[in-house]
Amino acid sequence: MTDDAATIEAIRRELADSYDEEFELELEDERLEGLASAATGHKPKGMDRKVYFRELLRLQHELVRLQDWVQSQKLRVVVLFEGRDSAGKGGAIKRITQRLNPRICRVAALPAPSERERTQWYFQRYVAHLPAAGEIVLFDRSWYNRAGVERVMGFCTEGEVEEFFRSVPEFERMLVRSGIILVKYWFSITDEEQEFRFQMRIHDPLKQWKLSPMDVESRSRWEDYTRAKEEMLARTHIPEAPWRLVEAVDKKRARLNCISHLLQQIPYGDVPHPPVTLPPRVRHEDYARQPIPQDFYVPDRF
Rank of each mutant, 00 (worst) to 15 (best):
P102R: 01
R95Q: 09
R84Q: 05
E28Q: 14
K89E: 07
H42R: 15
L80G: 05
G46L: 00
D68A: 14
G91K: 02
F53E: 02
E55K: 09
L25K: 04
R84N: 05
E28N: 11
E33C: 06
E22K: 00
A92C: 15
Q67R: 02
D29H: 15
E26H: 13
I104Y: 03
Q67M: 11
D85M: 08
V79F: 01
L59S: 06
V64H: 08
K45F: 00
K50F: 09
G90D: 10
D68C: 06
H61R: 14
K45V: 15
K50N: 12
R58M: 10
D17L: 11
G34E: 12
P102G: 04
D17M: 06
T40H: 14
G88L: 06
E28A: 13
Q98W: 01
A38G: 04
L35W: 04
D68Y: 01
Q73M: 09
E62P: 03
D48T: 01
R76Q: 14
K43F: 14
L75I: 05
R103Q: 12
D85N: 11
G90P: 06
Y52A: 06
V70W: 04
D85C: 07
S86E: 04
F81W: 06
D29P: 00
A39P: 10
H61N: 14
A36Q: 15
S86L: 04
E24G: 08
R103G: 13
F23H: 11
L63T: 04
D85T: 09
L100P: 09
V78I: 15
G46V: 04
L35G: 08
A16V: 09
L35M: 13
D20M: 11
A39D: 13
G46Y: 04
E82N: 01
R103D: 08
Y19G: 02
L75P: 09
K50M: 12
A16E: 15
K74V: 00
R95Y: 05
R84L: 10
V79A: 13
I93Q: 08
L27G: 07
R99G: 07
K45S: 14
K94M: 11
Q71N: 10
K45Y: 01
A36H: 10
